[in-house]
């Protein structure tokens, strides 16, 4: 069972307290009703599904109930970083690249 750090509780806690909520940094269009079919498809259906680093949303559902963002390596399943919802994509990741 993985340990996940909740950036609001500032604690590493067992995975069973959390629930994955899909890819992060996909903003809902402000004028969504006016989106073209192609744009809506890109927003709603298309995901990066990477082998390696993924930015994704998690919810501390059995804790503070907050949604937050996490950076995880899909190969090793390792969490590199978690940060609060609304914060920008981190530029530097611990243990990745130089």
């Amino acid at each position: 069972m993985l340990l996940i750090r909740c950036p609001y509780c500032e604690q590493e806690l067992p995975e069973i307290e959390f629930r994955n909520a899909g890819e992060a940094h996909i903003a809902r269009p402000t004028h969504i009703a006016d989106e073209t079919d192609d744009d809506f498809e890109k927003y709603f259906f298309i995901r990066t599904n990477p082998k390696g680093i993924i930015y994704e949303r998690w919810r501390h559902v059995h804790g503070c109930a907050r949604f937050f963002n996490a950076v995880r390596d899909t190969v090793t399943d390792r969490f590199l970083l978690t940060y609060k919802a609304g914060e920008p994509k981190p530029k530097r990741l611990p243990g990745v690249g130089k």
């Binding site: 919810r59 559902v61 907050r66 919802a85």
Partner: peptide
């Protein structure tokens, strides 16, 4: 409730 919280916290904060 999860659906509502999701939108409230992340899209309509």
């Amino acid at each position: 409730l999860q659906h509502m919280e999701d939108y409230l916290q992340t899209e309509f904060p």
